[in-house]
Amino acid sequence: MKRLACALLMLLASQLGAADFDYRLAAVQVAKDVYAFIGKTEDFTTDNGGNIVNTAFIVAPQGVIVIDTGSSLRYGQQMRRAIATVTAKPIALVINTHHHPDHFLGNQAFADVPIAALAETRNGIAADGNAFAENLFRMSGDWMKGTEVQVPSRTLSPGRLDVAGRSLRLVALDGHTGADLVIDDEASGVIFAGDLVFNGRAPTTPHADVAHWLAALDRLEALTRESGFKLLLPGHGKPTSDAAPIRQTRAWLSWLTAAMRESAKSGLDMNDVLARPLPAEFADMPLAATEYRRSVGHLFPAAEQEALGGKP
């Protein structure tokens, strides 16, 4: 009876969670002056409202540096309120790591401060932002209410960025999308990897160039071997103090491309490829089956064309 009451209460709590559109964002301190909001390793649903992504902030001497803004206006607003419970310092700069909607649709809540991204990320948000947002309205429902695209106002270049008394190393990579920014906060030893790294959640590939992505992972792993490295924050999944999620992401991508190439070479049709079982190594990874199906759509046509001897 007690258990039933408990279950009912939990059910009620989860219903309330959806009804009040509260992401329950709690800043987790991951290093000195560095905090993260760790999202669920799930796909977008009307239950999680798109809280499936990691965002972060650095409390610098003269202000706060925000890294990615979540998947909706509400997420951005709630994130900003949660930051204010940690520090009274003003927001100095917002950075979007890449042009995927779960990383920039909270920008609206930071419209009064500079928002910066790599040039190609800015272009991508301007070109595809509305279509991405529409898709999220469909997947996350009313959590998205009022969300509009806010294109970053400033362009970042790779190299040193001094902001609010903090010196960041910006590394411009690509492969997950056409422009993936990695931020190395040397003062804390935290590397913000964006979606080049997934931890315990199958990677997404809608704009992937897998060869470039694998090269980017090598660069990232080299960064983790530098003496100051302390913590790696992936775009999705838990932070780690080692490079294990980099290797996991690499293993998935290597298997995926090999599977596409080998399937095409042996004459499989796309439906045959979709029906292939996942290897045991990935079978239990959250969203492995879903992302595999999506990735076949994204990656198989090129492998097939190569096997059929056509020009790209």
Binding site: G267, E304, Q305, L308, G310, K311
Partner: peptide
């Protein structure tokens, strides 16, 4: 320039022997 360009292959061995696949631009 590539309209109606055909690339294709047949498989004579393996589990998909007898299969023909082609792509037309």
């Amino acid at each position: 320039q590539r309209l109606n360009e055909v690339s294709g292959r047949q498989w004579s061995e393996g589990p998909n022997a007898g299969r023909v696949r082609l792509r037309i631009v």
